[in-house]
Design a protein around this nucleic acid. Sequence first.
DNA 1: CTGAAAGCGCTAACAC
DNA 2: GTGTTAGCGCTTTCAG
Lengths: 353, 353
Amino acid sequence: MARRRQAVTIRHVAADAGVSLQTVSRVINKEPNVRPEMMARVQASIDKLGYVPSIAAQRMGGSRSYLILALNDRDRTIADWTNRQGTDWVDQMLLGGMLKCAEHGYRLIFELVDTHSDHIERELMGAIAALQPDGVLLTPPHSDNPLITGLLAEQGISFARIGSLKDGAGFALTMGDEGAARLATEHLIALGHRRIGFIAGDADYGLSQWRVEGWTAAMAAAGLATGDLLAAGDFGYASGRLAAERLLALADPVTAIVASSDQMALATLELARARGLSVPGDLSLVSFDDTPIARFAHPPMTAVVQPIAEVTARAVALIIDENAGRQTPHGPVVVPASLAVRGSTAPPRPPQS
Amino acid sequence: MARRRQAVTIRHVAADAGVSLQTVSRVINKEPNVRPEMMARVQASIDKLGYVPSIAAQRMGGSRSYLILALNDRDRTIADWTNRQGTDWVDQMLLGGMLKCAEHGYRLIFELVDTHSDHIERELMGAIAALQPDGVLLTPPHSDNPLITGLLAEQGISFARIGSLKDGAGFALTMGDEGAARLATEHLIALGHRRIGFIAGDADYGLSQWRVEGWTAAMAAAGLATGDLLAAGDFGYASGRLAAERLLALADPVTAIVASSDQMALATLELARARGLSVPGDLSLVSFDDTPIARFAHPPMTAVVQPIAEVTARAVALIIDENAGRQTPHGPVVVPASLAVRGSTAPPRPPQS
DNA sequence: CTGAAAGCGCTAACAC
DNA sequence: GTGTTAGCGCTTTCAG
């Protein structure tokens, strides 16, 4: 393999335009202090020669790498990919993140890291040393991991914490989990439900608790009790099944359930069916995430739709703005989730007297 | 933002180990001609300091970038992401490609390019100039695009053509489309079907034709006619519906259909249902791809399972081997697809006399 | 087998 | 406004 070099470099452009390297560099980076006519001349040469700066060289000379790293949990991501259930969290991040990056000449690189490993630090430092990214996108459960956020802050790397509301370094962004849970619960209340159960997600995830709070708030606002209606889960199918079993076995049973994930909602749906309960006739069901398994379920699930692409795009934009020295907002950014009403929710059966 | 530099560089390692930069470089790159004890000493310093080479610098100095570019069709990919139907082609490529890259210290970068654009060349050259990848993964319909393959060959960049059987530069890999179609058809023949229709995919894709050939071969081997049983499609839902309408309207109607994509199979399933035909009672159905919509259909679809992750991993391995100067195989690499038998196929109804 | 020199393509800092 | 100089961290020569 022959030694591969850049076909056309800044030097060629400079020669063609009859200016110094520095001037070309200024044009590329849209820096001020270049006369418009000069800029036009250089731009013409760039277009003519088809010049594109080497990001490796840009990183070597300057301080930017034009690389943004998206960190996801290794085990969960690989499990999702392997199971082929259609979970499209990664795709949605790519959709929002890649396209936004492309608009600004950045690239998004995906990276998997172990959550519960004692060498997260090593792994992360390795990725940072290798790529020297200009920014990092953190997803739950990494978003609130102080080892990770501390390290990034210390390195002076911009980062966004998706699914976090904490103060501190980095941008916090959420999809309005509390509001989404409230929306789901209010929908059920409006249909006439009074006994509405809630299956929580993994307690390692801050958003699990916010969703519980949204449900609690909606119930309280309607004057409804929540005493025995909260069941623990971990987002996974098996935990959903157990939680549903408990809620359906209550002396005064639920007529509706909100589940913090599609998997848990599906588990509930299948349990209901096995028990001879019809959905939504005997039991209404709302799920979180709206991945394909919720949409293709029978009946199709009423679900909270997470705007993952949108929130990722926002996170990328914040990082790029910060890198460009532009002003960035202070508080958390909320891109609210919405509710897609489908066939799994209906009014409860009239009480039998 | 302070100018960010590498925390620990090759220089620190060299100082710590008391050797020259060059020796450290040799150890990093596992080059020969280093005494084992020397190597051990340097490795110890690397581990101690947590040194990781900067890939930007590696690219600047040498000829490798440790980056592999995965090129996908922009329109189709964005459409899949936006529709949220669970198509996991990208995820499977990531699963196979990222993990294999990681094993060898490479990174996979996704890139979308327009197929039918007249400036593919510009777009591709831009990506190459910016990233200087060590290899490129081509997916259909780019795999056989001479503009793309020619350009890569000319640049001396290793590349893999997934879904291509053509000779020429770059590694050709397929999932044995012809064999897969034969497998599907033979499954139906073994169940007793005689009138087996086939809905082809987009003619822009070479694999569409191979699948037709597999079906034709299996039919011929069983002494069955295929005259009016082939319908054109383009992988999309609407085209599947049209094709199915034609096949179901035949004077001597089909009792089974093989569709070249899940979307087209689903369209067929829904059309059959609308016509009051039961699947698999009145019509057996086999789909290609086995994305979640096939698996979650009612009944669950018998489907050809494409080993996308596996073929991507193989492609990456070939590229890395070639870059390392290792021997690589000549002919096309085939990672055969398999058939998942589910509820959409059954023996045909006994003929009514 | 190991070391010293030169340079990859670009930008920061400073002159002009 | 624009040009000049000196690196960034690494690998490739080429000496020893």
